[in-house]
Amino acid sequence: MRAKIILMLLVLLVSLTFASDRNLPGGDETPVAQVKKIIKNVEFRDRTESEWLPAKVSTPLYDGGQVKTDAKSVAVILFTDGSGLLRVRENSILNVYAEIKNRKMNKNTYIDRGSVSFDVKKQEDEEFKFTTPTAVASIRGTSGLFDVVDNGESTMILETGSVELETKTGKKVSLTAGYTASFDRQGNANVVPSSEEDKKKLAQGKSLTTKKVIIKTKFGDVEVEYFPDENK
């Protein structure tokens, strides 16, 4: 009988451990990023093999964590070393990797698809990289937008600072503010001055303006907050 009780308690304890809300931070491991703001539907998961869960403000992201946004949705992500923020635009998947060592954090983000607007502070002797299927960008202190379409082609529009880019064929490209670099699937890079359309994309990438609709029903009011159409 006593053994059964101990066994039941152990099972309960293990169950509680696995059932705990992963939205709640806790424990010794330090998150590498944190969700600062959410518009509409944003999900996250700790590792690629785990299930997607709804994210909320303050959700911690650990090394290898992912963030996914639905249509008309946005997530603002802060890195916990204060190095900057990312605005994950609609229909995007962002992977966050970071290594904390000796009070320094080397960061790498992988964009599966979608757009990520970034505002990164000057990095002293730490790394901040953006990786896409066709290019890797090493960032020191800059702002701009990285866009990855479904076929893997990517575009970087740089608003301030400068970035060292490397295509998947190993070709290195320097990008300065006011220019746009695009990479095709073969790893070819093309750098041109940013067009008016690029500048509009930059502004849209930073926008966090939402609209709210209150639908009155006989069961009560339903509030719907959404991100307005970016193309309008």
Binding site: P25, G26, V57, S58, P60, T80
Partner: peptide
């Protein structure tokens, strides 16, 4: 306060 490693947070 909620503490996660080297992070302290309070959500709204």
């Amino acid at each position: 306060e909620l503490i996660a490693g080297d992070l302290i947070m309070i959500s709204g």
